[in-house]
Design a protein around this nucleic acid. Structure first.
Length: 265
DNA sequence: ATGGCCCGTAGAACGGGA
C-alpha cells in the first residue's frame, strides 16, 4: 500500500509542548503523520510554535492558557487544502479550561479532547469530569458528526475495560476506572463511535500512559487512556492502530505515548 | 512505607497530573 493511499491520524498528550517540541519535531519529520491532535500544550497561544510547525509542513490550530490544559490540531499542508476551526470549546459549558476543539480538514471532521483527570472520586474535580463528559456526549448526540467522516482523538483519562489496566484489582473503583467514567465512555461508543485500538486489537494489553514514578514504564505498569474513536463511515477504511511505546523511552519523555490510526484514503 | 516523578510558576514549595 502506498503511503499516499493512507491517512494517518495521531493523538499525543505532550505534557508541555515547550519541553517536548524537539520530540514532536522528530516524530513529525520521521513519521509524517497526516493529522496530529495534541493535549496539555500548557502554553498561551502567543507562545505556540505556529511558524516552526509551518516550516515542518503543518498547519496548526491551538487554544491555550497559562500553566494548564491546552489542545492543538496539526494537519499536513501538502495533503489538505481546506482547514478551518469549527469549535474551540464544548457548547453549553462555560469553562476557562481549554480542553476541546473541532476542526474540519477537507472532508474530515477532527475533534481533539483533553478530558479532565478527575483527581479523586470524592472530589469536585470528579464531578466536573463527569459533567464535562456529559456535555461532550450531548454535543455529539445533538450534531450529525457521528454520521459523517468524524474522528474524536484525545486523552480521555478513562481506561474503558479491565484489559486496559495493568492491575485491574489495584485500580478497581479508582479514578480513571470507575463505573461512572466507563459508562460515559460506553455512551460515546453507543453514539456509533468505534475505539480504533480495541477494534483492531481485541485482546492486546497495550497501554498509553505510565506513571513517572516507581519505574512504572520499565515494569509496564500502565493504563490505556488515550484513544482514537471514529464514526461508522470511517470504520471500513480502518487499517491499523498502534501505540508508539518507543516514544515513552525517550530522554525527558511525556508520560503518555502517541496513538496512531491508519485509514485507507 | 499511600510516596517516590515531572511540569509550570515560581524564585520556595505547591497545585496538578493520573
Amino acid at each position: 500500500m502506498l503511503p499516499e493511499a493512507e491517512l494517518s491520524i495521531c493523538s499525543w498528550n505532550v505534557n508541555s509542548l515547550k519541553v517536548r517540541f524537539e520530540q514532536l519535531k522528530a516524530l513529525l519529520e520521521t513519521q509524517r503523520w497526516d493529522i496530529i491532535c495534541l493535549q496539555e500544550t500548557k502554553m498561551t497561544d502567543d507562545r505556540f510554535p505556529y511558524e516552526a510547525l509551518r516550516g515542518l509542513g503543518y498547519h496548526a490550530f491551538h487554544i491555550g492558557q497559562p500553566t494548564y490544559n491546552g489542545v492543538a490540531i496539526l494537519a499536513r499542508l501538502d495533503r489538505f487544502q481546506d482547514m478551518k476551526l469549527v469549535q474551540s470549546q464544548l457548547p453549553e459549558l462555560d469553562d476557562p479550561q481549554q480542553r476541546f476543539m473541532l476542526a474540519q480538514i477537507d472532508d474530515l471532521l477532527i475533534a481533539c479532547a483533553y478530558v479532565p483527570n478527575g483527581q479523586a472520586v470524592d472530589s469536585d474535580k470528579f464531578q466536573y469530569k463527569l459533567n464535562w463528559l456529559d456535555k461532550l456526549h450531548r454535543f455529539l448526540s445533538h450534531s450529525d458528526l457521528c454520521r459523517r467522516p468524524f474522528a474524536l482523538l484525545g486523552d480521555f483519562n478513562i481506561a474503558p475495560q479491565d484489559i486496559d489496566v495493568h492491575d485491574a484489582e489495584l485500580w478497581r473503583n479508582q479514578v480513571l476506572c470507575t463505573s461512572e467514567e466507563r459508562s460515559r465512555f460506553q455512551g460515546l461508543l453507543d453514539l456509533g463511535l468505534t475505539d480504533c485500538f480495541r477494534h483492531v486489537e481485541p485482546l492486546s494489553r497495550v497501554y498509553s500512559w505510565w506513571d513517572y514514578r516507581q519505574l512504572a514504564f520499565q515494569k509496564n505498569k500502565g493504563l490505556r487512556i488515550d484513544h482514537i474513536l471514529i464514526s461508522q463511515p470511517l470504520v471500513p477504511s480502518l487499517l491499523s492502530c498502534e501505540i508508539v511505546r518507543q516514544a515513552r523511552k525517550a530522554e525527558k519523555a511525556s508520560d503518555h505515548a502517541p496513538v496512531v490510526a491508519r485509514l485507507r484514503r
